[in-house]
Simulated scan of single mutants.
Amino acid sequence: MIHFPAVRRGPLRALSSRLLAALLLVLVVVGIVYLDRGGYRDVNEDGVSLLDCFYYAVVSLSTTGYGDITPMSASARLVNVLVVTPARVLFLIILVGTTLEVLTEQYRTGLRLSRWRRSVKGHVIICGYGTKGRSAVSALLETGFDKQRIVVVERNPAAIRQATAAGLVTVEGSATRSTVLNEAHVRGAKAVIIATDSDDASVLVSLTVRQLTAGQVRIIAAVREAENAPLLKQSGAHHVIVSSATAGRLLGLSTSAPPLIDVVEDLLTPGQGMALAMRSAERDEVGLPPRELTPLVIALVRRGKVVSLTDPAGVKVETGDMLVYVRDDRAGAGTSSAN
């Protein structure tokens, strides 16, 4: 099942608006009948009072129709044909508004689903919307990635509600199943980020993605234990991040070199100061050493591989290289891109 983000009114507000519309409709009919009360006959033969007008409006709009108050004059009957009868239909529509709203929502969801299936391409699939999955989505949005091109695959109902509340399209089900990944249009995806809660599930997801896409979609996965990283790479993952090892190394650095932790947090936290970014090398930068460029270049990516800048022979920028550099995130300088 595919869930789309939606903006819903609260139930109390929706009910209040319907009650107000019904009350206004009753008052309109009461006013019209009261103005022409001489054209109506009451079985009591004592005339039609304001209370009788309310009574007639309510029983007429609710289609009860006891018949004790009836229109007699031509004008009263014309009013019943042109006003009371359409008002009766409108009143019934208000009463069954909940059912109509459900049907309308189902039609709207089906229309959005068909439109989404026709247009989804080059998107990123997030398998798992826990702490790692939410952080991955935040990082994508911080780099300017379109929220409409992010699809979350999750089977936890609470996580699904969080994802849809965040404005993300969500596919309900396990990412280890090919049918669920096909619902997310994995063959047309740009990348699949595996952020499941267990390493064995990550391996199964990676194998399933590789089988469905023949290795044409980039797979990025996170594992808890370092010993499972080689297995995940063998299953098809292009990049594997060991969360426990990374956290342990940061804990060690916080003891031996506390300022390094501040630098890492600054680089990873948006809007705080320094930030990592990547862009293509410009024409006038080709042939120059990376360390002579502005801003500070810390790595080169050449044909998908990272080139070390510590080579004694020296490294120069070539056409097609990607520059990884440090930018001033507070000033919004520089641009970032993803390969």
Rank of each mutant, 00 (worst) to 15 (best):
H3C: 08
A6Q: 02
A6F: 04
R8T: 04
G10C: 08
S16T: 07
L20W: 05
A22F: 04
L24T: 12
D36R: 03
D36Y: 11
G39T: 11
Y40V: 09
L61T: 12
T63C: 13
T64N: 13
G67S: 13
D68I: 05
S75T: 15
N80I: 04
V84N: 06
P86N: 09
F91H: 05
I94A: 12
T99H: 02
L100A: 10
E101I: 01
V102H: 10
E105H: 07
Q106Y: 03
G110V: 08
R112K: 12
R115T: 07
R117Q: 06
R118M: 08
H123Q: 02
I126C: 03
L141R: 03
T143L: 05
K147W: 00
K147E: 00
V151D: 04
V151Y: 02
R155D: 14
P157S: 13
A159H: 11
G167T: 06
S174H: 12
T176V: 13
L181M: 09
N182V: 09
A184Y: 12
H185G: 15
H185N: 15
A191F: 10
I194T: 06
S202Y: 01
L204W: 01
V205W: 01
V205M: 02
G215C: 11
R218H: 03
I220R: 04
R224H: 04
K233A: 08
G236S: 11
H239N: 06
S243P: 03
T246Q: 04
R249Q: 11
L250A: 09
L250N: 07
T255A: 10
I261C: 06
V264K: 00
G271C: 01
G273M: 04
G273S: 08
A277R: 02
M278I: 15
S280Q: 14
E282L: 09
R291I: 15
L293N: 07
L293F: 05
T294E: 15
P295K: 13
L296V: 11
L309K: 14
A313E: 15
G314V: 07
V317R: 08
E318D: 06
G320I: 00
D321G: 14
Y325T: 04
R327C: 14
R327M: 14
D328K: 11
S337W: 04
A338W: 12
